[in-house]
Design a protein around this nucleic acid. Sequence first.
DNA 1: AACCCTTTCAACCGCAAGTAA
DNA 2: GTTACTTGCGGTTGAAAGGGT
Length: 227
Amino acid sequence: MGRAPCCDKANVKRGPWSPEEDAKLKAYIQQHGTGGNWISLPQKIGLKRCGKSCRLRWLNYLRPNIKHGGFSAEEDEIICSLYVSIGSRWSVIAAQLPGRTDNDIKNYWNTRLKKKLLGNKLQSPTVNNFFNQNPYSPEIPMDALNSHCSNLDGANMQHILEGQSSFSLQNQEIGYGNPKRLDGMEFLHGDDIVNGTSSDLVCPPFASEYGGILQHYAPDQDHISML
DNA sequence: AACCCTTTCAACCGCAAGTAA
DNA sequence: GTTACTTGCGGTTGAAAGGGT
């Protein structure tokens, strides 16, 4: 048996929200809250929308203190740092940027920041230094890694290498299933690195730039501890 | 002015996790 | 423990806007 649809797709409106719909949703939630049930909310307020759509509209656009566009250089660097460290965990990244939504950050990264970073144009000495020393080259000097990372996880490495299927450290080829000691603390396997599945995440390369905003990320706890 | 291509971003989709019965 | 349902998330889509020719 397949999953029941969350709403009757034939009888819900889709596409852009009208100002009237926005006003109805906003007024109701500000007065009553969501009632703990998004699915039943649209019926309560007479909106022909899916509950998921209402939730998304509220979270990404209508709720108070939302900021749109105009990302600061500081926000750019926080996003880059976290992305390099933990990958596309947009909700975790958004939690570090008050007023920003995961959707906004995801869009911003996909459309602008990625190009900016990969184009090596970010005005951060540390980021520039790091990528200058590790410019998607098949060879990454161990010293350069150690100077920026306490250790290095698979996603991290994968982003730095931008899709290369294998690479070498100090001329040592890392292949699938071939464990290498990266930092004196742990071993990573080549396939873990390439697939981004290593469980031990790391002190991000650029964290020191941000006053230690991110020192350790615990993948099983879904939070970032500040040290 | 008209067309085409690229970029942006709001919204949708499907899946996994969480939770109540 | 199982099932049904809701919530939250990341990936993807597509319409609109912008820019170039």
